[in-house]
Design a protein around this nucleic acid. Structure first.
Lengths: 248, 248
DNA sequence: TCAAATATGTGCGATAATCGCACGCTACTA
DNA sequence: TAGTAGCGTGCGATTATCGCACATATTTGA
């Protein structure tokens, strides 16, 4: 399969790098060969290349990322002015909301956090941070992202992506999800409760795309803190004003 | 130049990716060819590969990163338990300090921020965020990192790295820098003022290496807020207790 | 307005890098 | 002691890659 416009070896190497995406920590070369489907010898060469370029660190037979990859991620963050413009805005509105606000974009069939508010008080529920990923189907962020997609992308994702049950409340019905996404599109926000994590609820509103990728602003909180309509109204009001501000 | 243990094409591709590290935003293919020293046609193929793998986005003739790279960086952060363990600790001590605390590691001849405290009040001076890089020579973080190196690495860096003047106060004398680094090693902290940015001062203390890379905990503040000895003592006390806590 | 400079697109043949198998080795464990 | 899992490596065939050379579009500037 010869393609004159892309470098096959490089693409395979990127697949190796992608093995270390969120979640997986230490991997052996054999793990990587299995995950990528590459020949073990090929995987080995690519791993050694990553090591000698400074992206991987060997600890016995285990491989793990070095912080060097963060420098590239930092390039994205500064290029998009996340630190300089977006972060302060998130902080300000998060304070007003007395909760946390995050910015997420769609990458294929998942969402990626690209910024989150710094709240002093917050005992961060989980280790979600910049670069963490979320599934699209059972989250407010994901559904708002899907609502902001082109219909073509949306259909493609709904038809091909993985359906995972996270809690007893996770909606596993395709038609129902589709309706909820359409509702989000018409209402201008999405609200999901208990479908990703029991006891947690999320609200998301759209903002203008960043570098071509759909983007949303979202908050999450314990399920009951969003139960009353007036609380919900307040959250939506703050999110929408923050979204307004972020429109350049 | 045939090397049986590394994939040349992949290494070149990684060089292309590294062009987008902190600072540079949009690049043309010709820019990349120049920066990497690759043939233009080769650079083009590698860029197209990055694009089709979803790491680059084309905007006319400009190329920029997509957030996908953040997912890999997120892999590093979660693997090192940054979000779950380190971040809350930073936040807590930053509050006590009423300032900001950052964690940085050495990557070659530069420092990379891998975490920073989230304090709502903090009017973040500049867009420094996770993944931002710093030079080693004129910063407290950098000198403490050099003090924590093996002598071999330290000499190698001091002899080969770039010497840049950032302010009128930047120390450009090799022997003097070397003395300051040795002092930092014996005192167990480094303190630098005005050498990187006029009006700014930094303090750094060492902590145990993370995945083999030297690591420091640091704070920065306006120059005069660290002038009084008792203020300095307080800062050092907080940083050291935070460092103690971070030792697993 | 024309020329120079800069950028991207692409065809192709020679070369050299990559591939993947196959074999040998170590370490752990049941 | 056999079985499993992982790493290292040599080598020949294949084929992906390289880089030149030419063509075209766009911007700059005199």
């Amino acid at each position: 399969m010869t393609n004159r416009d892309t470098a096959l070896t490089f693409a395979k190497g990127l697949d190796v790098l992608a093995c270390f995406e969120t979640g997986r920590g230490d991997l052996t070369m054999a793990d990587i060969a299995r995950l990528t489907g590459l020949d073990r010898a090929t995987a080995r060469r690519l791993c050694l290349t990553l090591e000698s370029s400074g992206y991987l660190y060997r600890h016995g037979k285990m491989l793990r990322l070095t912080p060097k990859i963060l420098a590239v991620g930092g390039g994205y963050l500064t290029a998009q002015h996340i630190g300089r413009l977006i972060q302060p805005t998130l902080n300000q509105f998060a304070e007003e909301l007395n909760g946390e606000i995050a910015l997420a974009v769609r990458d294929g069939a998942r969402a990626i956090y690209i910024a989150r508010s710094a709240v002093a008080s917050a005992r961060l529920s989980l280790g979600f941070s910049v670069g963490s990923t979320l599934p699209l189907l059972p989250t407010a962020i994901g559904r708002m992202l899907l609502a902001s997609c082109t219909p073509k992308d949306r259909d493609q994702i709904l038809n091909t992506c993985e359906w995972t049950r996270f809690t007893a409340a996770t909606d596993m019905d395709r038609a129902s999800i589709r309706t909820k996404i359409e509702d989000a599109a018409t209402q201008g926000f999405s609200y999901v409760i208990n479908e990703f994590e029991m006891g947690a609820a999320g609200v998301a509103v759209p903002i203008a795309p960043i570098s071509g990728a759909e983007t949303v602003l979202a908050t999450s909180a314990s399920a009951n803190s969003l139960a009353r309509p007036d609380q919900m109204d307040h959250v939506l009001d703050v999110l929408r004003r923050a979204a307004m501000r972020l429109r350049d």
